[in-house]
């Protein structure tokens, strides 16, 4: 009897072993994916550079830092990815230093958080920007390009996808908040980044009504939640870009 079942038992245990191994490999791969994902959040301006100052005195640098800290906390707690801030306090940091930090950490994605300003009170809501293709490339008269600019160009489509997800998530959270669209612009803060990168302006600080709202912790938390949902949407759909 034992000899009768030994081959079956062996086969059965082999199947169990294979299944367990597959689960372990899957778990390991999942853990690796989480470990490999590095998110860089960049609160715009800082230190002497206040950025935009609202009519009521609220500064862009302080709101951006607060939004970035809230977003980091949400990612830490709910997604577990390694998340860094380019600046965690009110200090000056050059745009090149911010880019170098993210490049040196081999970040998976980079989100620069700013606020909008317009010379007219009618403009409101969210605008998201990703790097435009450089005009040199279409000029027919090629010019020497700095290496880092060429690298950012390789992530353009992924940056566009990230911009789309953030825009979608923020509009979903604030359907009546105003839409300033998604645009490809020649953005210097993102030019030297070797990863998908966007600059998001979730509100317009020059608009008095929005400045008042930005003074509220609950509104800032809701904005950070919208940004979080955008990041989550983007990462769930996979990061298509390859690091050159």
């Amino acid at each position: 009897m034992r000899s009768l079942f030994r081959p079956m038992g062996g086969f059965f245990f082999q199947c169990i072993l294979a299944a367990v191994l597959m689960v372990l490999v899957g778990l390991a791969a999942d853990v690796k994916a989480v470990d490999d994902t590095v998110i860089f959040l960049d609160p715009g301006h800082g230190g002497e550079d206040t950025g935009i100052v609202g009519g009521g005195g609220l500064t862009e640098k302080s709101v951006c830092l607060d939004l970035a800290k809230r977003l980091k906390q949400k990612i830490d707690e709910r997604l577990g990815y390694r998340t860094y801030l380019t600046r965690g306090e009110d200090k000056s940091l050059s745009l090149d230093e911010r880019a170098a930090l993210a490049n040196n950490h081999r970040a998976t994605l980079f989100i620069s958080i700013h606020l909008g300003a317009f010379p007219d009170q009618r403009y409101r809501g969210v605008g998201v920007f990703y790097p435009a293709g450089r005009f040199h490339e279409a000029a027919g008269r090629p010019q020497p390009l700095p290496e880092w600019d060429a690298l950012q160009a390789t992530h353009r489509e992924t940056s566009k996808a990230l911009a789309g997800k953030l825009h979608h998530a923020l509009l979903r959270r604030f359907p009546d908040g105003g839409d300033l669209g998604v645009h490809a612009l020649p953005l210097y803060p993102l030019a030297a980044l070797n990863m998908p990168a966007v600059l998001v302006e979730p509100a317009v600080l020059s608009r008095a009504a929005e400045e008042e709202k930005l003074g509220s912790e609950s509104v800032r938390d809701a904005l950070a939640e919208g940004l979080f949902e955008g990041v989550d949407l983007f990462l769930k759909n996979g990061v298509a870009g390859e690091r050159p």
Partner: peptide, 11 residues
Amino acid sequence: AAMQTGTFMEH
């Protein structure tokens, strides 16, 4: 002037 200019207006 820099305190009054956002990304899109600068563009």
